[in-house]
């Protein structure tokens, strides 16, 4: 009997394996993207400008920690990438690209934070599908869109704009790209701005 039980267990698990594999919803990032129609390119009014101080923030991250503006002041230039929502088409392809550009951020003494207005469990599940991201991912879920509102990038449907901010070590905003929400921003202009800020002594 002792020998039969494991064999039966194995047989049962092998029997259910094809059923699990035949799940009609394909796994992973590519198979679970929610289709989104073309939206108005922007739907908010910026509340900051290049030269403005970066509003303070203190947000929870998917690893259980927090990210604060004060973590970076005087230490690192900081790039903040807001994407509108987890599990949507353009957003799901944006951070995997930043994930292979780590060297460039480090060469420019810059840190990167990814933020959406989704809650932590959603963000966790979504970013897990991207592999290991080297940068912290934070949630501006509650109070809903608090930082997005301070920046003036909270859209009327409760998601953020697709936006990039570069903040220097003094806490001054040096580059802003509030992009067409339907398209991914070219990394080129941001990298040029990072290099310019880094070159300043």
């Amino acid at each position: 009997m002792r020998r039969i039980v494991p064999l039966l267990t194995l047989a049962a698990l092998l029997w259910i394996a094809p059923a699990m594999a035949a799940d009609p919803i394909p796994g992973g990032l590519a198979g679970n993207i929610y289709p989104v129609p073309t939206l108005p390119p922007t739907d908010s009014q910026l509340a900051v400008a290049v030269g403005s101080p970066m509003p303070d923030f203190d947000l929870p991250t998917i690893t259980g920690g927090r990210v604060k503006l004060s973590d970076y002041l005087g230490k690192k230039n900081l790039v903040i990438t807001f994407v509108p929502a987890a599990w949507t088409p353009v957003c799901s392809g944006q951070w995997p690209g930043y994930n292979i550009a780590r060297d460039i951020f480090e060469d420019n003494d810059a840190a990167l934070i990814g933020i959406t207005l989704d809650n932590i469990p959603t963000l966790y599940a979504w970013t897990r599908q991207m592999g290991d991201l080297w940068f912290p991912v934070a949630s501006d879920f509650w109070p809903h869109g608090g930082l997005a509102q301070k920046l003036g990038i909270l859209r009327s449907d409760g998601v953020s704009e697709r936006a990039l901010f570069l903040v220097d070590k003094k806490g001054v905003i040096r580059f802003i790209d509030v992009h067409d929400i339907n398209a991914r921003p070219d990394l080129g202009p941001l990298l040029e701005a990072m290099a310019k800020v880094h070159a300043e002594k």
Partner: peptide, 16 residues
């Protein structure tokens, strides 16, 4: 066997 890469053959291997 269940968690082997082969069991995920139906998972997408491309960005759609």
């Amino acid at each position: 066997l269940l968690t082997a890469p082969g069991s995920q053959a139906l998972a997408a291997e491309a960005s759609e």
